[in-house]
């Protein structure tokens, strides 16, 4: 592959990662925390109703995990395509 193809492959993989992570981001916050909150509240997690827990705790933990996963994925991708910073 030449430089241009390499870069375009890098960018496409990046966009795929973004799409995947943002779908999870959306499902956990808007899905579990808002749209599906009532059915999820039927399920208990200790003293929490599950939907309430996602809205006030779980979504925030997920956000953190998503960013750190993204960092690891991208650092690896940068190296693979030799686009990382020296």
């Amino acid at each position: 592959m030449n430089d241009k193809q390499l870069k375009s492959a890098y960018w496409k993989t990046n966009l795929r990662y973004l799409a995947l992570l943002l779908v999870i981001w959306f499902i956990v916050s808007y899905g579990f925390g808002i749209l599906l909150v009532d059915p999820l509240n039927e399920i208990r997690l200790g003293g929490f109703k599950l939907g309430f827990w996602f809205a006030q705790q779980g979504s925030i933990y997920t956000f953190m995990v998503l960013i750190f996963v993204y960092v690891i994925l991208m650092n690896r991708l940068d190296k693979k395509y030799n686009l990382d910073e020296k």
């Binding site: 992570l21 943002l22 916050s29 006030q56 979504s59 925030i60 956000f63 960013i67």
Partner: peptide, 15 residues
Amino acid sequence: YDGSVYLMGWTGGYV
């Protein structure tokens, strides 16, 4: 529960 908008809103933006 309505207060969740601030909790999710002001953290989810960092993603």
